[in-house]
């Protein structure tokens, strides 16, 4: 059951990902990306990361993608205005990406990974567990990321505010 789920989700993920890349209209790209994010969230659920799945949808689909959508619409981008590379370059891009994949896999030498012992704790991805981890071990990164946000916030304001 979960195997088939995995396969279906995977296919969906990959197809939507390709759609992002190939779509002529930026709007379609955005939408395919949203689809892709949902399928990834599905994988999270499969992998016992339920909390993360929710957060993922909220943050990505809900926030980031909206931002993208917003910008695309603001700038009024559509398939007519969409710039395209030469076909040669596109082929080269695909070949390069493919090569990268091959090389990565080759260097990982995807043999069977180390065995793991079942049963795993299935509550690993629950809010409780994740939260505990986040506020104990990962307290410092958590705090520090606030600096990141501050910086990004000020930056966005500085960059985008209309003036003069």
């Amino acid at each position: 059951m979960s195997f088939y789920l995995f396969v279906i989700l995977s296919v969906l993920t990959l197809c939507s990902a390709f759609a992002v890349v190939l779509a002529k209209n930026p709007m379609y790209s955005v939408l395919s990306l949203i689809v892709c994010f949902f399928t990834v969230a599905g994988h999270y659920v499969l992998l016992n990361a339920q909390f993360l799945a929710i957060v993922h949808i909220i943050v990505y689909a809900g926030a980031i993608m909206v931002l993208f959508l917003f910008v695309v619409m603001l700038l009024n981008l559509n398939s007519e205005t969409e710039p395209h590379k030469d076909n040669m370059l596109k082929v080269a891009a695909v070949i390069t990406g493919g090569l990268l994949f091959v090389v990565l896999i080759a260097s990982i030498k995807a043999t069977e990974l180390g065995t793991f012992s079942l049963p795993q704790k299935s509550n690993l991805g629950y809010v409780e567990e994740v939260g505990k981890k986040l506020f104990t071990d990962y307290l410092l990164p958590f705090e520090i990321s606030s600096v990141l946000f501050l910086s990004a916030m000020i930056g966005s304001v500085v960059l985008a505010k209309k003036e003069k």
Binding site: T96, G97, L99, L100, V103, L104, S107
Partner: peptide, 10 residues
Amino acid sequence: MVIGMIVLLL
């Protein structure tokens, strides 16, 4: 960059 990485990985 990507090609560089591929070469170095190779």
